[in-house]
Simulated assay, not measured.
Amino acid sequence: MTAPTITGQVALVEDDYTLVINRGGDAGVRPGMIFAVHSTSGPVITDPESGRELGRLSREKLRVRVFDVQPLFARAHTFVETDSFHGLLGIPFVPDDDVVVIDVGDTVELIPRDARRTHVAAQ
């Protein structure tokens, strides 16, 4: 059985470590779920033959873990920053001088339990 795919967007940046996503219990979100936050402002990919816009590159900014679920939204704390050394190793996010900017409208996507690294899922 395939796990459900839940996607949405950042609806509110509550503080430096907490955000709200526009999916909640009605969409199947539960506490403990981990979502990847993706940038929506990557470079545009253009077909060199036709000049047609093919889409945008997206990069994962960080991961968040849901701790509060309402019917239509969920609140989540920063869990893993993926653009850093710590993210590459799957170490839980520890703030430092590097700043990851999350914007309202950034996309979020559920990370299926079987796709997580063992040591990340166990925390």
Rank of each mutant, 00 (worst) to 15 (best):
G32K: 05
L110E: 01
F85P: 02
V64A: 08
D98N: 11
H119Y: 10
F93K: 03
Y17E: 14
I111S: 02
M33T: 06
A11V: 01
P71N: 08
V13H: 02
T7R: 09
V20K: 03
G28M: 06
V99Y: 11
I6V: 09
H38D: 09
H38E: 14
I21D: 03
T107S: 08
L19W: 04
A11T: 02
I91P: 00
L88C: 02
H86R: 08
A27M: 10
R117M: 11
I91S: 04
V29H: 02
M33N: 04
Q9N: 10
H86G: 08
G55M: 04
T107I: 10
T5D: 10
I111P: 03
V80W: 00
F35K: 07
T2A: 12
T46K: 13
V99C: 05
P92K: 04
H119D: 11
P71D: 11
G55E: 05
I91R: 01
D68L: 12
R75V: 03
Q9P: 00
D47P: 01
F73Y: 08
D26M: 14
V94N: 06
V66Y: 01
V108D: 01
R63K: 15
F35I: 14
A121I: 10
L19F: 08
T118G: 04
T18L: 04
V94I: 14
P43M: 13
R23I: 02
R117S: 06
D106F: 04
E49I: 12
Q9Y: 13
A11D: 12
G32D: 10
L72A: 15
V66D: 03
V120K: 02
L72G: 15
D68M: 09
I91T: 11
G51K: 14
D26R: 15
G8C: 08
F67A: 02
R23W: 06
P43Y: 15
I102P: 00
V64L: 03
L110W: 14
D15V: 05
T78K: 06
V100K: 01
T46C: 05
R52S: 12
I111L: 11
P92F: 03
V108W: 06
F85V: 11
Y17D: 11
